[in-house]
Amino acid sequence: MPYNRVDVAMRDLLSTFSLLEAAELTGRLARTAAAVAGTAYAGFVRVDALRQDACPLHVHTPPGDPLRLRRWLAESGVLKELAASSDAVRLPPDVSMGEPGFLAMPVPVAARDRVFVWVAGRGFCDGDEHLLGRFATAAGRALEAASGCEAAARLLRGVRAFRPVPP
């Protein structure tokens, strides 16, 4: 087969666009959110367009989940609160009630569903809310960029598939 610059260039471009995987990026963003907030717990929640249901997209916990945060997310009603909210949600810790302390910020993304980034495991203040808000903005840009790269890769695969074969 003769050397084809178009094939080589297209393969290189597709490999570059394919480096970002949304699931891996979401995991890295959650781990970083936990580090930024000084906790061991963080994640993302998706809220449907009708604001009726919320479900965890990613949950980052330390091994063994000592605060049983996964269970708390499912049973506490915080997901319903996020579904109804358009602003930050801050819940103070209450050890006697099993409340770990929770802070969630909307992630500005151009999508049908709403997304929140959250951190948990301690009491949070206005400064934490400001910092997580700035992180949410950066996370939104990163998630949109990853989505854009995935879409571009799909389009390029179509160009490659339907490119005329040279004589």
Results as ranks from 00 to 15, higher is better:
residue 54 A to M: 13
residue 107 V to K: 00
residue 142 A to L: 15
residue 47 V to T: 03
residue 83 A to L: 07
residue 33 A to F: 05
residue 100 P to H: 14
residue 141 R to W: 12
residue 81 E to L: 08
residue 117 V to W: 13
residue 133 G to W: 04
residue 100 P to I: 10
residue 124 F to M: 06
residue 27 G to P: 05
residue 62 P to D: 11
residue 75 E to L: 05
residue 91 L to A: 03
residue 147 S to C: 06
residue 68 R to N: 14
residue 82 L to R: 10
residue 130 H to P: 00
residue 137 T to H: 15
residue 34 A to N: 09
residue 96 S to A: 11
residue 102 F to D: 03
residue 123 G to V: 02
residue 74 A to R: 10
residue 121 G to P: 15
residue 124 F to A: 03
residue 118 W to D: 02
residue 82 L to Y: 08
residue 30 A to E: 09
residue 110 A to H: 13
residue 95 V to H: 07
residue 83 A to N: 07
residue 132 L to W: 12
residue 41 Y to V: 13
residue 113 D to T: 11
residue 94 D to T: 00
residue 79 L to K: 01
residue 112 R to T: 14
residue 107 V to L: 01
residue 129 E to L: 05
residue 48 D to H: 04
residue 35 A to C: 06
residue 22 A to L: 15
residue 144 E to N: 10
residue 51 R to P: 00
residue 64 G to W: 13
residue 87 D to V: 10
residue 105 M to H: 11
residue 87 D to I: 05
residue 33 A to R: 05
residue 84 A to L: 12
residue 80 K to I: 00
residue 128 D to Y: 07
residue 139 A to V: 08
residue 87 D to N: 13
residue 87 D to R: 12
residue 139 A to D: 12
residue 21 E to P: 06
residue 145 A to P: 00
residue 135 F to D: 06
residue 58 H to W: 10
residue 67 L to S: 04
residue 129 E to R: 09
residue 36 V to D: 11
residue 73 L to V: 09
residue 40 A to E: 14
residue 98 G to F: 00
residue 40 A to M: 08
residue 60 H to E: 14
residue 52 Q to Y: 10
residue 115 V to A: 08
residue 92 P to F: 04
residue 96 S to I: 01
residue 106 P to A: 04
residue 48 D to P: 01
residue 102 F to M: 08
residue 30 A to M: 07
residue 82 L to I: 09
residue 71 R to H: 11
residue 39 T to N: 05
residue 143 L to Q: 09
residue 83 A to F: 04
residue 101 G to H: 04
residue 116 F to Q: 07
residue 44 F to K: 04
residue 100 P to Q: 13
residue 89 V to Q: 02
residue 46 R to S: 06
residue 54 A to S: 13
residue 28 R to K: 13
residue 79 L to P: 08
residue 104 A to I: 01
residue 90 R to D: 00
residue 118 W to T: 00
residue 107 V to T: 02
residue 103 L to W: 10
residue 64 G to F: 11
residue 47 V to R: 00
residue 23 A to D: 15
residue 136 A to F: 05
residue 31 R to L: 14
residue 97 M to P: 00
residue 136 A to C: 12
residue 60 H to C: 10
residue 99 E to F: 09
residue 24 E to S: 15
residue 110 A to F: 11
residue 56 P to H: 04
residue 69 L to P: 01
residue 118 W to A: 03
residue 140 G to E: 10
residue 130 H to E: 14
residue 124 F to L: 06
residue 119 V to N: 06
residue 39 T to G: 05
residue 123 G to H: 07
residue 61 T to F: 12
residue 135 F to T: 02
residue 123 G to P: 03
residue 104 A to N: 09
